[in-house]
Design a protein around this nucleic acid. Structure first.
Lengths: 330, 330
DNA sequence: TTGAAAGCGATACCAG
DNA sequence: CTGGTATCGCTTTCAA
């Protein structure tokens, strides 16, 4: 038999109303009784029934988080940031991994929505239309983190356009003129579009006309990196390459090694993301590091003070971290 | 205003009881009305209030999952397995990342428990005593996955003892006699104890007396691998080393490279875990691969049919995957 | 400062 | 096959 506030009230000889007030720290009550109630609660091993509380309050402090199960290795960092802030501000996170399978995705999202949620945060997710419609019809606040969706949904991410400028400028300053971009050729996601455009414009600002062939690779996978090297063959038509995710860059690095290409002597690499993965390679990857933890924190704090309008776009800072994969050429 | 079954009942001219039966597919009802109700539900954009349902049913199909935020990179795989099975059997997963910070850990666990949970699954977690007491006092079914805790809690994991035999035998067969074990010297976790004992006994079975110095390193981190190489110095007193986690083994590999030691010529490495990380290195790591997805599936299916007793220990299979980090020596 | 009582939304029992 | 109704545990208004 589970303990309820009724039991506590009974044992303490007071009403459930008082117990509730005390345990939630709302309204007025005497410190005397409070003391007793708290002790009693402990003693009896009381656990609040959150379902009942949510039901009664018609609202909760739960924020749903949708994480793609094809796990980007930075999702953890975002979650860490969110969790930290959520704890601080008294919110709860309800994390759900979503499959790529649409049917299952729908189920997951529906069951998420069947709790009273304050908001739903989507991490690095390109949601399917069907699922998206459900989300919209549920009428909860939505927020996309690390990815920009469309104009209807607020987002927190890096300034992907500017980031590409930073990277291209860095490579240009090191003498590179032929620069490829791997893993951002997908048609859809706004992030890919922004990166491509940033890349193209940055090159243009140095009077370099971009070569469409140099933008290649759709998926953010290790395999994309491996195959990129194979595709271009020897000798590589470029001296530097930008990997759109750490895992791609590691693929590039290994692909290069497998092909007998020396990094950075024969090929320079700059990676986007800058997670701990960059430390695992030799040489260590030069990276444009995104501030994922910050994104997570901002997600929660913005939801908390309700400061998001439907077209809010919030940018977090980028840190350029020189590693050992870029060389200066003549 | 949110839509409830009452609204649907009203619009359909029937009782809430009927609507409930139809929407949950329980009890008897005519297909005619069912049809209408389902349409109406869709039309009105109805979402079940799960809190109310849980409250009413005094039980839920929600399984809580505690994941350490110091993210072991195999947690994803376990979760994937759980999610898959949970979906199949109609359970929901409520995932919570827990901090190392004890205070915060307590909060997280308490808030988890304040929902009616069917069970709590702990992934690769060495829970603190305080937290553990809470968990026990809450009187939910507990289950540890990929880690064995103590005799009070059922677990699903690899047979860590046998696994070490497999690894040591493999190395022995390749001529190695001096074998180190990195990252399992922690006093506490049963897994570490089992691995040490397996390692020692396996060596003994080949008439090799183990060298206590060769068991080194507590934390399952990249840094542990890096430092292990530094600690032993050149020339290394062993010809082969076992890394207790992929990330450790990558540390060993890089540490070796940094020290001018060639793998596998001068040093052989076998790693425990065998996640995708093993594919990112050159050479690719030779691994004793744990079946994490299977662990996740078993976790759910065993919880589902309630077949766990408090000292159940379920083992999943190990797959030995030869890579490029072991050489045969004379 | 405290208590009585009316919900919150869904379920399930018992009649009909 | 369908409906009325008590119930789950907690919160909150209104009075006392």
């Amino acid at each position: 038999m589970t303990i309820t506030i009724k039991d506590i009230a009974h044992k303490a000889g007071i009403s459930t109303a008082s117990v509730s007030r005390i345990l939630t720290n709302r309204g007025r009550f005497s410190e005397d009784t409070a003391q007793r109630v708290r002790e009693l609660a402990n003693e009896l091993g009381y656990f609040k029934n959150q379902s009942a509380a949510d039901l009664s309050q018609k609202a909760s402090r739960v924020i749903g988080v949708l994480v793609p199960i094809t796990h980007t290795n930075f999702a953890d960092e975002i979650i860490k940031g969110m969790q930290h802030k959520a704890y601080e501000l008294g919110y709860e996170l309800l994390i759900a991994f979503v499959e790529t399978n649409s049917q299952q995705q729908t189920e997951t999202v529906k069951s998420l929505l069947s709790r009273q949620l304050l908001a739903v945060v989507m991490l690095a997710l390109d949601i399917e239309d069907a699922v998206f419609d459900i989300l919209k019809s549920a009428n909860v606040t939505l927020l996309s983190v690390s990815n920009q969706l469309n104009n209807d949904i607020p987002s927190i991410s890096s300034d992907n356009y500017a980031m590409m400028h930073t990277i291209v400028d860095y490579l240009y300053d090191h003498g590179h003129r032929q620069i490829a971009l791997i893993g951002s050729s997908d048609a859809d996601p706004i992030v890919a579009i922004l990166r491509r455009q940033g890349y193209i414009d940055a090159l243009a600002s140095h009077d370099i006309t971009y070569n469409p062939d140099f933008i290649w690779g759709v998926e953010m996978t290790y395999q994309t990196g491996i195959e990129a090297i194979k595709k271009f063959g020897l000798p590589l038509p470029f001296t530097a390459v930008i990997g759109s995710a750490d895992i791609i860059s590691i693929g590039l690095l290994n692909g290069a090694r497998d092909a007998g290409i020396s990094v950075p002597n024969d090929l320079s690499i700059v990676t986007v993301d800058g997670t701990e993965l960059t430390q695992l390679t030799r040489p260590v990857l030069t990276a444009a590091q995104q501030n994922f933890t910050k994104m997570g924190e901002l997600a929660i704090s913005n939801l908390a003070n309700n400061s998001l309008s439907s077209h809010s776009v919030i940018f977090t800072d980028i840190t350029f971290i020189p590693g050992g994969t870029v060389t200066t050429i003549a």
